[in-house]
Amino acid sequence: MDIIWTLLEALIKAVVILTLILLFAAALGVWAERKISAWIQNRIGPNRVGPFGLLQPFADVFKLFMKEDLIPKAADKTFHRIAPIITLGIAISVYAVIPFAGDVQIGDKVYHMGIAPDLNIGILFVLALTSVGVYGITLAGWSSNNKYSLLGGLRSSAQMISYELSMGLALVGVLLIAGSLSLNDIVGKQDVIWRWNVIFQPLGFILFLVSSFAETNRTPFDLPEAEPELVGGYNTEYSGMKFGMFFLAEYANMATASAIMVLLYFGGWQLPIPAEWLGLQQGSISLAIVQFLNFMLKIALFVFFFIWVRWTVPRFRYDQLMNLGWKVLLPLALLNVLLTAIGIWILK
């Protein structure tokens, strides 16, 4: 019985959260991208569909559904179809382990505010899934049977593998401090603003930030889809909703990366000040709501940052990208691990 209830609970949470994430995070992300890019370029941006053009992303998705779905003659049809599913699927799956607020106690039952019940290897799961994400893009590039797509796919696999190393190593600092792989534990340790990990791990945070830009294929590391050289990169041969899935996946990934950064370095759903100061009780629903909003606000700020960077920094050259990854970020990440370890050893 217990198992069924747990599964049912997870399912309900999944539906609620995925709808929220997909419909709002991704759609809002697209809207925000267009609005902010417009503002930075002294334009207005979407303003026709709905108030402030807020419904523009839905109109776009509707348009993408209506579009002709082309599959090139020479493409590997199966993989060509599977690739966008992998990419979007992975991007969504990561939310399974992200806690959105502290546990809520109703009666004597404790509810965990994430889809999966508190997973003690949460961060490993996230790392594993983001690594699988590269398959979607590589397959898309390869199966299209188009030189631009293939080059885009190759670049993305090389890039994602290179930056995964520094990202993983940058994380080790946080793990050393928290002493746990569970995202809940990591967040739990950062209960006030002066215990946020970013204060102890400034170098680690910067490394992680840069790497996650590369992992999500966002400017200045968007070489897999570099328009001037590769037409559209791995998604050159995609149209209709298949293209839409790549598009959504990019924004879902951005939100994921933001969420993870918030969880690891900015206290996750923890408020900057102890909850007691606001007169809210641990485990209460009202606190959970405040925590959730707090978490969302932090994510939104990071998403804004992602977008802001995109419209400021030009794209790297491929050799510069590789140099940065292997010759700068990786040694710095190793140094960060060493310094953190020494620090913890001394404090103990």
């Binding site: 902010i36 417009a38 503002w39 930075i40 002294n42 334009r43 207005i44 802001w308 960077v309 400021t312």
Partner: peptide
């Protein structure tokens, strides 16, 4: 990024 941020509040030409 400072430059681009300032641009956001400048008048629009659309």
């Amino acid at each position: 990024m400072g430059i681009t941020f300032r641009q956001m509040f400048k008048p629009k030409f659309t």
